[in-house]
Amino acid sequence: MTPKPEAFKIASAGLISGWLLLFVLAPNLLVAGLSLLSRSPAGFAGWPATLDNYRRLTDPVYLHVFAESFATALVATLLCLLLGYPFAYGLARARPRLRPLLLTLVIVPFWTNSLARIYAIRGLLAAKGEVNHLLLAAELIDQPVRLLYTQAAEIVGLVYVLLPFMILPLYGSLEKLDPRLLEAAQDLGAGPFQRFRHLVLPLTLPGIVAGCLLVFLPALGLFYVGDVLGGSRHLLVGNLLKDQFLEAQDWPFGAAASLMLIGLLLAFLALYARAAKRIAPDG
């Protein structure tokens, strides 16, 4: 009976709890409180308490921004899923010796700041950029086409930055997929498509949901992708948030909008928990 492990347990649990309280819970509570205050010309917020900020979120101007941003994020997420799933499948089925190398290739882009990479994409898509050069050289077009400052450019940027966040959780669940289950299904008469539909897809659902979560939510918030590739025409929710805090100086409204995103995140997490539970009912 030594008191040491006990003390270590309390210390480590205390440290983590303290950290979470101080840097996660407290700021979020501040934001939540802020969202219920009014805009103040003197400071950044003041009395009286009000629900006006949430009411303003339903203003058609903002609803339009949300709808457009959601659509952009949704398309980017689906593209990531379509590109990421076959890649992750190949990765999980690759020879064990090859896997670390392939995984590194997925992660290497993280070593460069994503803002820098977005500017690189901007260079590629510019009117005199490489993509137009190639298309001209291939004689597919007679004159440079407009690629930059379109919704498509924005989506290309989002997919490029966020694809690894889709691949990694998909790889995680595909790698855990027991090949013996696929053999059993084949033994019971399931062809390749049936095996995918009845086994691979449902058994990797947690990875799919996790990947979509990790792509969709950042896709709403990556304001610099919107700024650099979408011009100011195609706003993301992230641009809206940034503008409220930095340009319009309307912190309470910005807080309300960001709480809405947090609410969305929680809804997705609930969805994820349900998908994971379907596969392992005991835990």
Binding site: D178, A184, A185, Q186, D187, I279
Partner: peptide, 20 residues
């Protein structure tokens, strides 16, 4: 003839029951 088209079934050592 692929496994899915053979009129033969297997009881696997690991059972390989579908968990979902």
């Amino acid at each position: 003839v692929p496994p899915e088209a053979r009129n033969v079934n297997t009881v696997f050592q690991s059972y390989a029951l579908f968990p979902h």
